[in-house]
Structures are given as C-alpha cells and as structure tokens.
Design a protein around this nucleic acid. Sequence first.
RNA 1: GGUCCGGUAGCUCAGUUGGAUAGAGCAUCAGCCUUCUAAGCUGAGGGUCAUUGGUUCGAAUCCAAUCCGGAUCACCA
Length: 596
Amino acid sequence: MSFTSIIQSAAIRSLQELSGYQFSENDFQVNETKPEFTGDYTIVLFALVKTLKKSPEVLGKELGDYLLKSYPDFFSSYNVIKGFLNLEIADEQLTELLVKNYNDEHFGKKPLNHKRVMVEYSSPNTNKPLHLGHLRNNFLGWSVAEILKANGNEVIKSSIVNDRGIHICKSMIAWQMFANGATPESTQIKGDHLVGDYYVKFNDEYKKEVEELIQSGKTKEEAEKEAPIMKKTQQMLLDWEQEKPEVRALWNKMNNWVYKGFDETYNRIGSDFDHTFYESNTYLLGKDFVKEGLQKNILFKKEDGSVWIDLTDKNLDEKLVLRGDGTSVYMTQDIGLAKQKFEEYHLDKSIYVIGDEQLYHMKVLKEICRKLGMPFADNIFHLSYGMVELTTGKMKSREGTVVDADELVDEMIATAARHTEELGKVKDFTKEELKELYEILGLGAMKFYLLRVDPKKRMIFNPEESIDFHGFTGSFVQYTYARIQSILRKVGYEQSAINNQQSATGKLLPLERELIIFLEKYTTTVSEAAEEMNPSVIANYVFNLAKLFNSFYVEHSVANAETEEKKILRLHISVMTANIIKNGLGLLGIKVPERM
RNA sequence: GGUCCGGUAGCUCAGUUGGAUAGAGCAUCAGCCUUCUAAGCUGAGGGUCAUUGGUUCGAAUCCAAUCCGGAUCACCA
C-alpha cells in the first residue's frame, strides 16, 4: 500500500472515531506537501469542514493529534496552516521502507491480474521505409506494452503490415519500368529504402505523364485517370487480386526486401512483436458480418448495391461498409480483424496505437461493432497520438522533408559518439564497448525525447534539441545511473554492503527524506502510467528522481559519509535509486550504461 | 459548416479526481571541479495560464460564449 493510501485510510478511520462520520476516499485529498511548508503529506481539510461543522484550524488540530496518537510509528509531527494539515512521516518508517526494498530489482511491479491485452503498433506500409512518425508509434506502443506487463497484464504485441493495395503496386510498377533488375544486393541499398525509392520514382513519372496529357489538351481529372503508368498500376492490382503468378512473385520478392529492411530497423530500435498480421491475409475478412447485419436490419443497402450503416444517432454519419461491386473497404476488414483478434487470443482488451488522424475512423469502428452486437466492442481502445511535426512545419514526403528513421538513428548514435569522445571519460573502453555505449546513449536520447511528452499531444521535433544530452533528457538520467555505479565500485558494494541489512538510526537529513519519499512513489507512478497508457509519466518521474539524486549527490558524500551508519543508509538510497532508474528507463525501452 | 483535440515563461513541455506564492528543461546572466563522474550542482531574471463571463471558501483545472491553431467528416488507404 502506498503512503498516500495509508494516510487516507488512517484519516478516514480517525475521522470516524472522532466524529462518527464515515468518509470515503473521494471526500478529501491527500497531497504531497509543497516544499515551502514543513511536512511530507498534506490533508486538505476544506472539503470536510461543511459536514463536520468545524473550522479548518480546529479540525486540523483534532485530526492531527488523533493521527499522531493512533499511529505513533507512522507519523512524527504535524502542523496546520489555514485549511491544510501537514503531516510528517517518522524517520523509522522511511528507513524501514528503504531497507525492505532497496535491493528489489522489481520494485513497482504488480502481481499478475490475468488480463490479456493486445497492443497493436507500428503497422507499416511495405512501400517505403520507416520515418520519424513511425518511431514515435513504435516507441509508444512498445513502452505501453511493457508498462501494462509491469502492471500484471499478459500482453501480446502485434503489428499489422499493410502489404497490399494500389500503393504497393506503384513501387512494383516503377521497379519493373526503371530498375533494370536492381536488388538490395546489387545496389547495396537496404531493401525498404530501395523499394521506397521506386515509390518516389512512380510519383515523379506519374506527375510527368499527367503534365504531358494536360499539355495535349486534357483536363486535370482526365489526365490523372488516363496516365499510362496509373492504368498499368490499376491493372496490376487486379492481377494481384486474381493471384496472377508473375505479379505475386514480384510482390513476394519486393515485400521480402522490405521485411528484411524493417527487421534490421526494428532490431536496432528494439521493437518486437509476438504476432504479425498481414493485410494480404486479412483484407477479405469481415464480409460475413455484412450479411448478418443486413438480416438484422442494422445495415442497409442502397440502390447501387453498396451497404451502409446509419450512425447519425451517435453524431456520426452514414458509413459505407461494402462497395457496390461487393469489394471491401478498410472498415470491412477492420471489423473482421477486430473480431478475429478477440476470438483467437481471448483478449480482455485490444489496444490500437494509431495516429490521431484516425480518431474518427476508430470511433466509427467501435460503434459499428457495438451496433452489430459484438461483445468485445467496448474493449477496443484507440491509443491515439499526435503527429510529429518539424520546426519548419509538417513532414511531407512530396517535399522531401520526411525524417528517415534509419538516418535519424545513425545521426543520434554518431552525435553520442562525438560528444562522448569530447568528454574523454571512457578512453579505456574497447571498440565493442564504445559501440555499445554509443548505441545506449544515442537511442536513449531519441527514445526519451519522443516519449517524454504526452502522446495525445502533437509534438514538434527539433533536431538540435533532440540530440541534446543535457537537462530533461535520457542521457541525464543515464548519467545519474552511471554515477551511482561509480560510487558502488568505489566502496566495493558487491562484497560488503549486501550484508548490512539493518536500518540506520539517527535523524534523516532533508534530502535523504525527500529521496526516500520520492522512491516510494514509483509504485503508484507505474500504475498511473498504465491507467493513462502514458509513458511520459514514467519519463517525468525518472527525470525528477535523477534530479533529486544529483542534488543529494553533491550535497552529501556516500563513500565518505559522516558515520558508518550514514554510509549504509546512503548506499541503500543509491542502490534503490539506481534500480528504479534502470527499471523505469527499461519501461521506456532505454538501457543504462555502467560508465559513461 | 458538423464533430473532436489543443492554446501555460522567448522556445519545448509538466501541472493528478478544483487546493497554499503556477513548475521543469533549453536559451540568457552570476557562481561552483584537490574529496564518490561538472553529460553535474547552486542562484537570478523571465507569466494577464488565449479572451470574457459564470459556478464557490478556493479555478490553469469545472461550465458557457468568443478568438486562434490543428485533425477529421471519401465507393482513399
């Protein structure tokens, strides 16, 4: 149980014994005491005043006295200022918490709750390489999955690969026309980039053809429809659907290039999946529910044969679920796949990590499932995140302002290397050790930068800021960890301190108290991050912890503490801080270096 | 036009179910390496919490209206 909830229930009990009233958790707040007042936790009394018909001062004094008397081991003192009852927690309580948990590498982790959750994230198209936007999605999805695991859920990470459709055919056509058989091996270009190059090539060629047709007197619409390269592409899509062998073979070959490229990138950035869905397998799903929906009069048919659902009662429009020619739209397969996920994996919850431009689509999906009477409809959750924009505006592939994921990763690692060399602290590292360190630092900085803001908000990517290693960054937190390891090496922690389990006596200094109280909060922070599905909660916590520890570090020596007892106490604080940093950063997919 | 999201320091962002004098980082300025790593620490300046009204002991937070920015409303994916 957390300190806050202990205090809350102690107060509820005390108030009942004092006044006879039964209050609940929602009736009053327990906050952390603001730094300018003495105390650790504060009970806000105003809300109780009305019911109890007492002035805040009187009530505060009564409750404070009673709490102190009833829980002498827990509270050491109190004071009342205006309507605020500030309570101080007894030193012994803090040291006990510390001794019990400092060496627990899984502090904050919750027991299994037997809930099964699927997190679908990444979900790339196989016609171009990953970019900055995908990185936010990948880091977010991966991190949320880990946070849910830490809270006792059984999590299945999944991805749906968008591997079919007109956009895929565009790359294929352009490759046929212009590549002269070029392969990743022959060109030494990573497969996803090679295919992406031909996707760009398609658009260039298409634009050229349209231009020419307009010159020869066609309207823009006519030209766009009649451009030969587009006609070829549409024909290829039909051939693909009819499983024409040559087309399927080319499709297979090029997609495999892309998968190989993606795997390399995923490997590097640490994304992994328990299951991958392919749209080429799922795009025909969902047609059966159309029949059923029509029978039940939930769906209706228009004269041209297209099938719709009326969602105007939910403030959404009429939505198409099947085309007039009987082929699927996106919604059709999304409903089919949603159902398949729940049935195959027996999920309690299905989370989709998708950009907020699809908020409407996901809302409609959920509503259709609900109307069709699918029992899982309410367990579909869209974890939407905002777009990543550049300081110069939006990323546009047509204008070449897209930040490529592989390039960015390279750049981050290179910058980490440069910076580390300038500082010259790891000259004795081997080549392999340096390589590992640079990756830990470069990727750490990038992940932290993308995860430290609330996912729901769109964010601005500032290249200079993102490669900064000072302040609110991953490196700052990693540095604190490395510093602690340095202390532990200095005192030979492994050998000696582990045997010193007794709690330190004597008064705790302000920074020592503050740190222990902050460490205690990690458990509730992990829960909060899961509830909100928000890794930035962890990022903020871990940063503030590092900051607090750094203040402590310069103020008080661990290795040369005033007494042996103080040394042990501070070692315990240091070890617990390091454990939580490692753990918390781990939930963000960030590793920690022993030295940097 | 409808719906949804957002507007907090020069910039990027925190700010729990309403609580005390609104906080960080960057940038600027002034200090701190003979002691566990200065990728650090200490301090200073910087705010009409978009605007107006309302709700109440108390509002950045809740409600309404307005202004500004964005997303979305395809027989596209």
